[in-house]
Design a protein around this nucleic acid. Sequence first.
DNA 1: TTGAAAGCGCTAACAA
DNA 2: TTGTTAGCGCTTTCAA
Lengths: 344, 344
Amino acid sequence: MKFEPVTIKDIGKALGLSTSTVSRALRGSYEISAETKKLVLEYAEKINYRPNPIALSLKERRNHSIGIIVCEIANNFFSQAINGIESIAYNRGYHVIISQSHESYERETVIVDHLASRSVDGLLVSLSSGTKDYTHLKQLYEKGLPIVFFDRITSEINTHKVIADNFKGAFDATEHLIKNGFKRIGHITSAPYLSISIERLEGYKEALKKNNIEYDEKLVQFCDNGGMNYDEVEEALKKIFKLKTKTDALFTAGDRITTTTMQALQKLNKKIPDDVGIIGFTNTMVGEIFSPPLSVVRQPAFEIGQVATELLISMIESKRPVTEFETKALQTELIVRESSVKKS
Amino acid sequence: MKFEPVTIKDIGKALGLSTSTVSRALRGSYEISAETKKLVLEYAEKINYRPNPIALSLKERRNHSIGIIVCEIANNFFSQAINGIESIAYNRGYHVIISQSHESYERETVIVDHLASRSVDGLLVSLSSGTKDYTHLKQLYEKGLPIVFFDRITSEINTHKVIADNFKGAFDATEHLIKNGFKRIGHITSAPYLSISIERLEGYKEALKKNNIEYDEKLVQFCDNGGMNYDEVEEALKKIFKLKTKTDALFTAGDRITTTTMQALQKLNKKIPDDVGIIGFTNTMVGEIFSPPLSVVRQPAFEIGQVATELLISMIESKRPVTEFETKALQTELIVRESSVKKS
DNA sequence: TTGAAAGCGCTAACAA
DNA sequence: TTGTTAGCGCTTTCAA
């Protein structure tokens, strides 16, 4: 199918004006007579003229679009973060292009390449769990493409980063379990390389330490697919429940990990919180109608998206190279419901 | 920040060749000597040359990108549909630009305008609940921009459409409730103008009729925000529960409506399924861990996205105007759990 | 106040 | 086999 839009040239021809006059009239240049301006504007309106953004981009070497790379949009944290991103981008006149890495390093490199080959002005990225090498991003970044990391970040690239305060969120959740009488707390988390996994694990360890509970690495299980794969979570649970000393609670670190763990616990016939208490990082909007109502660590996903986008746009629009970078950590929220509170 | 990418001209200069030679070598034209070709390719590889897609688009008047307009991505149906869309688009070399109308007609028109002003090759749209007028889309469509509707469609524009078999899904769900001994079934649905609302309402009515239950329009409540707004759902429920004859079951028609209804029922202290049975359209992945496990009508969201995308790309790539259109209705799946089955 | 022309990066028709 | 040139839609000097 063909789509033949009106160009500035068409307007010029119809009105007997040069393209430059039309162009100037359209952008309200002061050097054009009010009369001509009116003529052009009215005609443009009439035929519903829209400037070709592609031609503009070619000129300005700007696209007014930013690329987002996340592992999965079917994840409450990310869909909410994207909403935050969109809310800012939209107001600032930027389009948003969303791509999913599906936790694959290969896919991430392809996407980055695809997006970055100058079709976006900047990148908002949350790393895939398979990514251990950052050269695909580093190269681009060093060439001058603005990048802001959010949620899953890396210390190897020096730029703005926006995260939840994962350490504190994990610490609070773990300590909450301890204070509620749970003694042996398992930790199900995402891939071990991920910044979020590391930060949350540290928070977990710190809470144990503070409360004089010995850290046992057998209680920590990593799920490389971040809970997207049911079996991997069930496996992890089985390993924990096979241990001699009985695990009486679980701290899960990730949106899909938390909900999938709930499913697995149900399938394994574990009563919550009697057999096992649970609290986890998740941004589900329906935790209260789970069985039992689920205690959660909620991340400020929307705000994380907003802040990251503001930082990115400031980089994009900065005249001079940005050299001062910050890592913002936004506070999480602990929402206690029945799953983490012993009944007796 | 500035991002100075390598152009074909740079390569030409470095190698002492004309831009056209470089261009041809790059795309492997047969008329270029193997030697030159090799030279160019190797150099391009070395300096990591990437063609500027914007310049390409300007030439080809094609973007290789398709726009998606949905009301909300934080909705299981849509995030899954987008996954389907992406899976096809990605393989066919198309980018995907996602925008959210947030159920607002104004926002939808702005987005459509924005996207369609030639920055996308085609549009995949699911209408907002506020949309009763379709001229913004119709105009574009008549100018030749390929559009495929999915999920929320309109009969006013004659193009490809892909939906779930909403009538049958609603019919089956309602009849399932009836067969399980529920007598007076309320129906909570989205905005009344939406095609999905109409189709599902028809299925509901038909099931009542077949089972000799009189249709009572007071039992049907429309939620214009599609369940995004908690209060609107709670209001709807209160209205139904205030009726003299007791409502003993609910058929909810929409992803967010269903989950929000569950939340409201809990808050209103209604026991499910004893006080009120419930089954609803939703693509939640965690229905089984709800309290009680939720019976659902599941839509083939991923497949709907895939099929719609295939149809759209076929329109985009078709040499001659497409005149034969089809409306595909994919089957839903009824998943019965405890919420719709009386215990006694 | 307006127009002519160059240029953004690339492709392709035409020449050589 | 390679180079020259025009053109995609637009903005922006430079001239008039």
